[in-house]
Amino acid sequence: MNAPKLLEMRDVSVTFDGFRAINGLSLTLAAGEMRAIVGPNGAGKTTMMDIITGKTRPDSGSVRFHGQDLTRLDEPAIARMGIGRKFQKPTVFEALSVRENLLLSLSGLRGPFSVLMARLSGKEQARVDHLLDMTRLGDFADHQAGGMSHGQKQWLEIGMLLGQEPELLLVDEPVAGMTDAETMATADLLREINRTRSVVVVEHDMDFVRALDVGVTVLHEGSVLAEGALDTVSADPRVIEVYLGR
């Protein structure tokens, strides 16, 4: 943990109508690190992502990205700072083609007037082609995204995430509903991405987490239960009790 801190959550709590979804959660991520977050249903994994990306405002605690407090910012501002998010349920713009989806995701123009006046540049064209290659969607570039398979949508969404060129990627259950082969390919893709960017992955699939071969944080009832390598963590009796043991 000598690398500079990229993301730091300190003592974060949030309550929904009396239910404590996140309870004094603290988590630190170094620049360039990839981290897997595991935990049973209701452990607060998705809510944690909601807090980082500005969808949910915490009741207390602080979230710092490059030392800047995120809790006062809204989603677009946080996204523009370089935090990208992939949802549990793949969310792409179904009425648009794959290419148009990727084009919209490209970092750069964000104001409505600049988008209105935008014309496709050669550079943007090249970036989209590169993303199509990387996500193996080149053959489907002009297909409507709504007609793609579940796995293809997952990949398209990851492609869009890369188009944003974020420093930190938050990936929520990327391999849910994928075949084993697709799962392993996704693990490779994430490791590839991790070379240049930091990644937080939420996942249930232990084979996938093992394949990623990264540090694991176990969440339980809204706070951190254990942290470390997968083998260490899965040997922890408390973890076995709340999660793996069941």
């Binding site: 929904f16 109508d17 809510t47 969808k55």
Partner: peptide, 8 residues
């Protein structure tokens, strides 16, 4: 009605 289930 509030909570995570409420989509914005």
């Amino acid at each position: 009605v509030r909570g995570r289930g409420v989509e914005s």
